[in-house]
Measured scan of single mutants.
Amino acid sequence: MEVRTIKVFTTVDNINLHTQVVDMSMTYGQQFGPTYLDGADVTKIKPHNSHEGKTFYVLPNDDTLRVEAFEYYHTTDPSFLGRYMSALNHTKKWKYPQVNGLTSIKWADNNCYLATALLTLQQIELKFNPPALQDAYYRARAGEAANFCALILAYCNKTVGELGDVRETMSYLFQHANLDSCKRVLNVVCKTCGQQQTTLKGVEAVMYMGTLSYEQFKKGVQIPCTCGKQATKYLVQQESPFVMMSAPPAQYELKHGTFTCASEYTGNYQCGHYKHITSKETLYCIDGALLTKSSEYKGPITDVFYKENSYTTTIK
């Protein structure tokens, strides 16, 4: 009895394709271990004539594949690729409408935090270190965002349907971005203890939790000093293409032309909904596939993004 075979390709990165001759009487799992086709788990399936010449994702289970996976995804987590594939199996079914010149995501599976993050990423200057993220990001900007969303979920250790947080998501993504040249110098002034300067680099240099107003941050924000008295913390120097200011959701007025974009969060910790506000020729609110415009805006804002380049204080 002759062994019926077909020729397929296996890959971990969709760049390096490895030619395989597979036995049609055995499952993919018996031949390769966990195997995925377009995100779908085909591990328990036997090869079919229609699979001839198709590319299958496999887990990096030998040295060659491990090197290829690390170079593309910059992670050695053995569960990463499987999590990416199972997320992709959902995100490829989502709709990605162009809204006001940006790629958004039609609401499904509690994905409003991903839509808000995706919209924000198209408006701030950011370059990702893992080629996987950078490639998928370019495709997302062009309207094909399924891979990018699935990668975000995998890097953030999230599953489809789980509630997510924009600030946490951005923080994970910033860790995989090139923020080497970003720098922030802060000064804390206390009447009792004097003053202390701190220099922050990388992710810490672009994120701040405690106030939404970048102007206020430049002037000074009140913080408790270690001595128990009130101290003032203010920005001395900022070198970065953008800054992200966050605070627990509270009524906040966004003035046209003073910011790049913002995240609105309605609801409580267990259950809520994100919308995205962007400042173009007027203010726009993007909620999944829905767009509304207004000249002014007041609502429960939790993150505001500002364009920056270089700032030095005039406070002496």
Rank of each mutant, 00 (worst) to 15 (best):
L212Y: 03
V58E: 00
K183I: 08
N100H: 10
Y284G: 08
Q237K: 12
C193E: 00
T103D: 03
C227D: 01
F56E: 03
Y265K: 02
M26F: 10
I15F: 15
H273Y: 00
S25T: 15
E68L: 07
E281M: 01
T55R: 10
T120K: 00
N147H: 13
Y57G: 04
Y155T: 02
C156D: 05
V42S: 07
T312A: 10
K54I: 13
A262Y: 02
R83W: 07
Q134A: 11
F9A: 09
P248E: 11
D287Q: 01
C182R: 05
H51N: 05
Q175V: 10
D77C: 12
T313R: 15
I277C: 06
L118F: 11
A136I: 01
M207G: 03
K280Y: 09
H256Q: 13
G53H: 13
Y155P: 01
E264A: 10
E125L: 03
V42W: 14
C261D: 03
F259T: 02
T116P: 01
H276K: 00
L65F: 07
Q251N: 11
A108N: 05
C227P: 01
E71A: 13
I301A: 00
L151Q: 08
K275Q: 10
V67Y: 10
L200A: 07
Y284R: 03
V236N: 04
K233S: 11
Y297E: 00
H256E: 09
C227V: 01
S240K: 03
D23M: 11
G143K: 01
K229P: 02
G267K: 13
A140R: 03
A87H: 07
T169Y: 01
Y208A: 11
F70R: 12
A205G: 02
M209E: 11
G53K: 12
R66F: 14
E162F: 01
L291F: 15
P248L: 10
N16H: 11
A132H: 00
C193Q: 04
N178S: 09
L133K: 01
W94T: 03
K106N: 08
E52S: 13
N61L: 13
A115N: 11
N16C: 06
Y155H: 07
T266H: 12
T11D: 06
A289I: 07
E281F: 01
R141F: 07
A140F: 11
P78M: 09
H256M: 15
V243K: 02
H256C: 14
K183M: 12
T192L: 09
Y306Q: 10
D23I: 14
Y284V: 13
E239P: 00
A145M: 04
K158C: 00
A145H: 00
N16D: 14
N111G: 06
T282M: 11
G33V: 05
E296V: 14
F128L: 02
L173I: 12
T312V: 11
L200V: 12
F174M: 07
T169M: 06
F32H: 05
K280P: 01
F148I: 07
Q175N: 08
G101K: 07
Q197P: 05
V8M: 14
E144S: 12
V160M: 05
S240L: 01
S295A: 15
E215M: 01
K127F: 08
P224M: 14
P34S: 11
A177K: 02
T76D: 13
P300T: 12
L235P: 02
K293S: 12
L102S: 10
K280N: 12
N49C: 14
K316I: 15
G299D: 03
I315E: 15
T76Y: 14
A140I: 13
G288H: 07
Q237H: 15
D62K: 06
T27V: 14
I152V: 08
N178T: 03
K95H: 14
T258Q: 13
G220S: 05
T232C: 06
T199P: 04
I45W: 14
V236K: 03
P130M: 01
K280E: 14
F128Y: 07
Y138S: 14
W107C: 04
S86P: 06
T232I: 13
P224A: 12
T76R: 10
S213Y: 06
Y36N: 01
H273S: 00
M26S: 14
L88D: 04
P34F: 00
G194M: 03
N268E: 06
G39E: 10
T232P: 02
Y137Q: 04
E239M: 06
A108C: 12
D180V: 08
T199L: 06
F128N: 05
C285A: 07
H256D: 07
N110V: 00
K316Q: 15
L37M: 11
E71F: 05
T278P: 01
K293L: 07
I15W: 13
R167D: 02
P97K: 10
S240G: 05
P130F: 03
N178F: 05
R184M: 04
V206S: 02
S104L: 08
L133C: 15
N89C: 14
G53P: 05
Y137N: 02
L121A: 09
Y252F: 09
P300D: 13
D287F: 05
S25D: 15
A177Q: 08
A177W: 01
S240C: 03
D287E: 05
S79V: 13
S50T: 13
Q175P: 14
C190Q: 08
A205H: 05
D77F: 03
G220N: 01
L153F: 07
S295R: 10
I105C: 02
T75A: 07
M209Q: 15
T292H: 12
K44I: 12
